[in-house]
Simulated scan of single mutants.
Amino acid sequence: MRASGTFKVVSFTPASLTPQPHVETGLPVGVATMEKRYEGDTLTGHSATLFTAAFDQEAGVGSYVAMESFEGVLDGREGAFNFVHSAATDGGPSRAAEHFAIVPGSGTAALTGITGAGGLRVDEDGTHRIWFDYELPPS
């Protein structure tokens, strides 16, 4: 099944955590927490995100890894689960080396047993889109 919608970042809070030992690279590694809100015909809810990136904001170059804890409704089924995603960018609109997976064993309530993958993209107008291609065990 596929559930899809749009999302907005409600908050982005950099954390004071720094990797140890310190290694000097061309892009520093940072850690932040995020809150997102999701809306759509088949997807509504919110998430808490742990976000790690090596990124140059001015050039738009870098990579990130995010672990999200989603709580909400997929196709009328309410519950929570974790998903992980990552990508790289070279400063253009495209994303490369993408990874997106629902964490096995993380589902609760009507989403217990959820498995699958998904993806996200940012439209030229700045709209953030997400989709989950998922399966649930028979009830």
Rank of each mutant, 00 (worst) to 15 (best):
P14A: 05
V65P: 15
F81I: 10
L74Y: 06
V29M: 09
S4C: 11
G40K: 05
V31R: 01
M34P: 00
G72R: 10
G62Q: 07
P21K: 11
E35W: 00
S16D: 15
A80F: 11
S69N: 14
E24R: 09
G79A: 05
D75W: 00
T6I: 10
E24M: 06
A15P: 03
A54F: 13
T25K: 12
T25Y: 07
E39A: 11
V65M: 12
S69K: 09
A66K: 10
F12P: 00
S63R: 06
F12Y: 02
A66N: 12
Q57T: 14
Y38Q: 12
T33L: 01
V84G: 12
E24S: 13
S63Q: 08
A54W: 08
E24T: 14
A59I: 08
N82M: 14
G30Y: 00
E71S: 13
S4W: 09
A32P: 01
F7C: 07
F7N: 08
P14E: 02
G72V: 09
L50D: 10
T44G: 05
H46K: 10
V31K: 03
T13H: 01
A80G: 15
G30F: 01
H85T: 12
G62K: 15
T13M: 01
Y38K: 08
M34D: 01
D75F: 00
E35C: 02
V10K: 03
G40M: 04
S69H: 13
F81M: 10
E68P: 02
G26Y: 11
G40R: 06
F70L: 15
E58G: 12
E58I: 15
T52N: 05
V9C: 09
F83S: 14
N82K: 12
V9G: 04
G45W: 10
V29G: 05
V29P: 08
T42M: 03
A66Y: 09
G72D: 05
G45T: 15
F81V: 05
L43F: 01
A48S: 11
V23W: 06
V84N: 10
G79P: 14
F81T: 09
L74Q: 05
H46C: 10
F51P: 00
V73S: 03
N82F: 14
P28N: 04
V9E: 12
V61C: 12
E78R: 14
Q20W: 06
D41T: 12
L50W: 03
G30Q: 02
G60M: 07
E39W: 04
R77I: 00
P14F: 00
Q57E: 08
V29K: 02
L43T: 01
R77W: 00
Y64C: 06
A80S: 15
A15F: 06
A66M: 13
R2Q: 07
T6G: 03
F7T: 04
V9A: 03
S63A: 15
F81R: 14
L17I: 12
E39H: 03
S63D: 06
E58M: 15
F81G: 13
G62R: 12
G26Q: 11
S11Y: 09
V31C: 07
G5E: 04
S16G: 15
V31Q: 07
P21W: 04
R2C: 03
F7Y: 14
F55G: 06
Y64L: 07
V10N: 01
S47E: 07
G60R: 07
V73E: 02
E24C: 05
